[in-house]
């Protein structure tokens, strides 16, 4: 389900791309056993960029963004996030994960904790924030995603769209500098997609650096400053959204766009 671009209202005034590099991926390769899933990935993301990653199923989109916070390990090349290179060093990995928020297709909220506890857990344990302060912070972000009244419910009692917004709030409570989204709307019903996209637009308007795997091309057009197309483990094409959609160069990109725009 694609929400059309006209439905999204975007204020681009705060969206500024700085010269500061947030993520630098150089000659990165990854294998699953014998299967070469990511091939020769080179990508530089500056602070304030909103990047949408598109591509057919199985092209390695999830794998790539999961490498950025080391949920997956790469075998060659380098990934530098916030100036810290990702290696086997656990302390450094935790350091990077603190600064990089992530939202998943299936939300991955903690079902045994209330919404509020979901949001305060990491600040309390990882940032060593006092409980009171963490709760105030959590309520602040829950209001921003427009569900402060659900704070004492459990995730199972919320709708899918609400759960995904809680997941976004949970990440924001850690005050991340970069946000990764892996198909945040693809498990949702059409009417809930918009509420989640609105939240993401709000984030973009505030200047958050975002990497977003999504099939919402309306979102890509309006919010992204760059669209990346992946196929068979490689970055095949990237461009500004206007150019990318109106004037694709690669045959595979054209085929893909014709398929998703076709209906």
């Amino acid at each position: 389900m694609t929400v059309s671009a006209e439905e999204i209202d975007v204020d681009r005034s705060q969206m500024k791309v700085s010269d500061d590099v947030a993520i630098q991926i150089t000659d990165m390769n990854k294998w699953y056993g014998q299967f070469h899933v990511l091939r020769d990935i080179n990508l530089t993301v500056n602070r304030g960029e909103r990047i949408v990653i598109a591509g057919p199923s199985g092209s390695g989109k999830s794998t790539m963004i999961r490498c950025i916070n080391r949920l997956e390990e790469h075998q060659s090349g380098s990934i530098v996030v916030n100036g810290v290179e990702l290696t086997g060093d656990l302390k450094r990995i935790d350091e990077i994960r603190r600064e990089v928020g992530m939202c998943f297709q299936h939300f991955n909220l903690f079902p045994h904790l209330t919404i509020l506890e979901n949001c305060t857990l990491a600040p309390i344990w990882v940032r060593k924030m006092p409980k009171r302060e963490a709760e105030e912070r959590a309520m602040h972000f829950l209001s921003r995603v427009k569900i402060p009244d659900q704070a004492h419910k459990y995730p199972g009692q919320l709708s899918g769209g609400q759960q995904q917004r809680v997941a976004i709030a949970r990440s924001l409570c850690m005050n991340p500098q970069i946000m990764l989204f892996d198909e945040p709307t693809s498990a949702l019903d059409p009417e809930m997609i918009k509420e989640v996209l609105d939240t993401m637009v709000d984030l973009a308007e505030e200047g958050m650096t975002m990497l977003c795997v999504t099939h919402e091309m309306g979102f890509a057009r309006k919010v992204a400053n760059r669209v990346i197309f992946m196929d068979r483990g490689q970055i095949v094409e990237q461009n500004e959204p206007e150019e990318f959609f109106n004037n694709p160069q690669n045959e595979r990109t054209k085929l893909f766009l014709s398929q998703i725009m076709g209906h």
């Binding site: 949920l71 935790d94 350091e95 990089v100 991955n108 903690f110 857990l121 990882v126 850690m174």
Partner: peptide
């Protein structure tokens, strides 16, 4: 997804185990 959710927030292995995985 539960471990991944916890790890993506920066929780360590032991914190993830103790706070997220074991209680459930």
């Amino acid at each position: 997804g539960q471990t991944e959710g916890a790890q993506s927030l920066g929780l360590s292995f032991w914190e993830t185990t103790r706070l997220i995985v074991l209680p459930q």
